[in-house]
Amino acid sequence: MEIWINPRCGKCRAALGALNDAGVEYTVRRYLEEPPTAAELAKVLERLGLEPWDITRIDEQAAKDLEMKDWPREAGERDRWIAAMAEHPILIQRPIITADDGHAIVARTPDALKSVLP
């Protein structure tokens, strides 16, 4: 299991605490320091069953600078969104957990987090 975190994020710290409490083995990826590639993001999105705009932090300054609120949310624009997140990883919603069984979640709620705990 891998968890993508920003250590300054309270939801990320809560998710790490829950994983530790459950005794789950995992690796941490500080995605701001080790940004995912566009290909990695595409794979994670596939595992999540989401589109890039579903996990974009649209209120971040980078999104405002790029005027992402006005970007079309359609299949033809998918690569544009993914490229922006790869270039500006602060735009990626967090924490993201990819489980060994192929399951992936955005662990922002207790229920979502429970879905990857034993």
Score class of each variant (00 low, 15 high):
residue 1 M to A: 14
residue 5 I to A: 00
residue 6 N to H: 10
residue 8 R to E: 11
residue 9 C to D: 14
residue 9 C to F: 04
residue 10 G to W: 03
residue 12 C to R: 02
residue 15 A to T: 11
residue 16 L to W: 07
residue 19 L to N: 04
residue 20 N to S: 14
residue 22 A to S: 08
residue 24 V to P: 00
residue 25 E to V: 13
residue 25 E to A: 12
residue 26 Y to I: 07
residue 27 T to R: 15
residue 30 R to N: 13
residue 31 Y to V: 00
residue 33 E to V: 05
residue 37 T to F: 01
residue 39 A to V: 14
residue 39 A to W: 06
residue 40 E to W: 01
residue 40 E to L: 00
residue 43 K to M: 07
residue 49 G to T: 13
residue 50 L to W: 06
residue 50 L to C: 06
residue 51 E to L: 08
residue 52 P to K: 13
residue 52 P to I: 05
residue 55 I to R: 01
residue 56 T to S: 01
residue 58 I to G: 04
residue 59 D to S: 12
residue 62 A to V: 14
residue 63 A to H: 10
residue 63 A to F: 08
residue 67 E to S: 13
residue 68 M to D: 08
residue 74 E to W: 03
residue 81 W to D: 05
residue 85 M to V: 01
residue 86 A to N: 12
residue 86 A to Q: 12
residue 86 A to P: 07
residue 87 E to V: 00
residue 88 H to T: 04
residue 88 H to P: 00
residue 88 H to W: 00
residue 89 P to R: 03
residue 90 I to C: 03
residue 92 I to N: 01
residue 97 I to K: 02
residue 98 T to C: 05
residue 101 D to Y: 12
residue 102 G to V: 12
residue 102 G to C: 02
residue 104 A to Y: 11
residue 104 A to K: 08
residue 105 I to V: 15
residue 106 V to W: 10
residue 106 V to A: 05
residue 107 A to V: 03
residue 107 A to T: 05
residue 108 R to C: 09
residue 108 R to D: 10
residue 112 A to R: 13
residue 113 L to D: 08
